[in-house]
Design a protein around this nucleic acid. Structure first.
Length: 421
RNA sequence: GUGGCUGUAGCUCAGUUGGCAGAGCACAAGGUUGUGGUCCUUGGAGUCGCGGGUUCGAGCCCCGUCAGCCACCCCA
């Protein structure tokens, strides 16, 4: 019988790693709420149609990376969410949170995303993202608030070697004009493009700018720049974003070739990379999407947000040897010498827990020596030692595991001893 | 989806021209009545990823398959 293993591209978070996850998640919540974003939780699957209309029919994510299926012959097609924004937009429309133009909603989420890809470092079929979305504010300040929130999140997590790149492809009209110009420029040079980019030329030409293939880089060298096709409004918006970032003393570079994989972005785009990640070095990215709400059936409402990968953040922290804070509550281990003591300690342990003391003990008989070894391995701060003599005296021994000191105390004194030091 | 590398104990890995499955760490018990970290002794633990083939005999050679890693692609 073959062993059942975790499905390809999925990972278990074991007890030894969960404190790191808890730290990241807690930091995300703290920063998001500091910026006055509230949590939203949406389903991990949605109608397939949502992602086709939201993320874009021609994107790689929708074309070849979704988990899509029909749970029953009579059901509609559903898709495990490949990203967070589309579901959030659906939910805020559906529940009337942006019922009228001018409604303002600021939300954040933490949860899994699913993409059917070939796994490698920093790339899984289930990965988790912390993301935020801000609806209703067209001002560049809103773009910058999201960026600053994201950078503050990384700062508090302790990530180093961060690089923020930004770009603007302009509003829908600017983007369309630029796309046409790019296609017009590249079509005569089609034969010198990579095979992938020849396909992209019809399907998603802007992504050719992002290609790592030297042939594509050469072909794009003299290509028109997106900045020259921005409408006056888009140009002014982007200029203001740059001013505000500079004013906030955020380091960034403008990268005219930065293009992201979702069709819904307009105007500002950004991406953050970190050291220690290998080829998949983006830990988060975002942008403005002023047409998405309307295209999913809501009132015309601007939006902007980002998604940040938790697994990639953890890889970066690991590579950069960033220490993660561990438990601070002291652990008390009860050690029993004999059966009577074990029954005594079982009751004492329950009393300690009721009073908020983290306590544990061996539940089956073992030698005192073995019990101490386990207490040591579990990094207990204190041991309570009970044998027949302690029971008859109505006392317990309290041992400080760091110093080895032992003192005899009554059970009534225990809690104050353990909580004061 | 494409290419390259790798799968042996819980972990890290050795295993010679094909000839009895190994080490370190970890885990468990003990080292004279009830005390941890160091040390010593002993012990348990494996379908050598899985399935075929060649051979008297396969962890080792051949084919297939699955998984991991790295890169492309894509992106968090």
């Amino acid at each position: 019988m073959a062993q059942i293993k975790a499905p390809r591209g999925t990972a278990d978070v074991l007890p030894s790693d969960s404190p790191k996850w808890q730290f990241i998640e807690q930091t995300a919540r703290e920063v998001a709420e500091l910026y006055h974003f509230s949590e939203i939780r949406t389903p991990i699957y949605e109608a397939t149609e949502l992602f086709h209309r939201g993320v874009g029919e021609t994107t790689d994510i929708v074309q070849k990376e979704t988990f899509t299926f029909r749970p029953r012959p009579e059901s509609e097609m559903i898709t495990l969410r490949p990203e967070g924004t589309a579901g959030v937009v659906r939910a805020v429309i559906e529940h009337g949170l942006i019922a009228q133009e001018g409604s303002r909603v600021k939300v954040y989420y933490i949860g899994p995303n699913f993409r059917y890809e070939r796994p490698q470092k920093g790339r899984l079929r289930i990965h988790h993202q912390f993301g935020v979305e801000a609806f209703g504010i067209p001002a560049p300040e809103q773009d910058v608030e999201c960026i600053l929130l994201q950078m503050e999140f990384y700062r508090r997590c302790g990530v180093k070697e961060l690089a923020l790149r930004i770009n603007s492809l302009g509003d829908a009209e600017s983007k369309a004009r630029y796309r046409d110009a790019l296609v017009a420029y590249l079509t005569p040079r089609k034969d010198s493009l990579s095979e992938d980019s020849q396909r992209r030329l019809v399907e998603n030409p802007l992504r050719i700018l992002d290609s790592k293939d030297p042939r594509d880089k050469e072909a794009c060298a003299g290509a028109p720049a997106a900045g020259d096709y921005l409408s006056d409004r888009s140009r002014a918006h982007f200029e203001r974003v740059k001013e505000l970032l500079a004013d906030a003393e955020a380091d960034f570079v403008v990268d005219g070739n930065l293009v992201r994989g979702f069709d819904y972005y307009s105007d500002t785009l950004w991406e953050v990379t970190a050291g220690g990640l290998g080829a998949q070095n983006a830990i988060g990215g975002g942008g403005r999407y002023d047409n998405l709400v309307e295209s999913l059936g809501g009132r015309p409402t601007p939006g902007v947000g980002f998604g940040s990968g938790i697994e990639r953040l953890l890889i970066a922290l690991e590579a950069q040897k960033v220490a993660i804070a561990q438990r601070c509550r002291p652990l008390v281990w009860l050690i029993s010498i004999g059966d009577a003591a074990r029954q005594h300690n079982w009751k004492l342990m329950r009393q300690l827990r009721e009073q908020g003391v983290m306590a544990d003990m061996d539940l089956s008989p073992r030698s005192p020596k073995s019990q101490f070894k386990v207490a040591d391995r579990e990094k207990a701060d204190w041991c309570i030692v009970v044998g027949d003599s302690e029971i008859s005296a109505g006392q317990v021994k309290l041992k400080n595991m760091a110093t080895g000191e032992e003192q005899t105390v009554t059970p009534a004194e225990l809690v104050s001893r353990l909580t004061t030091k």
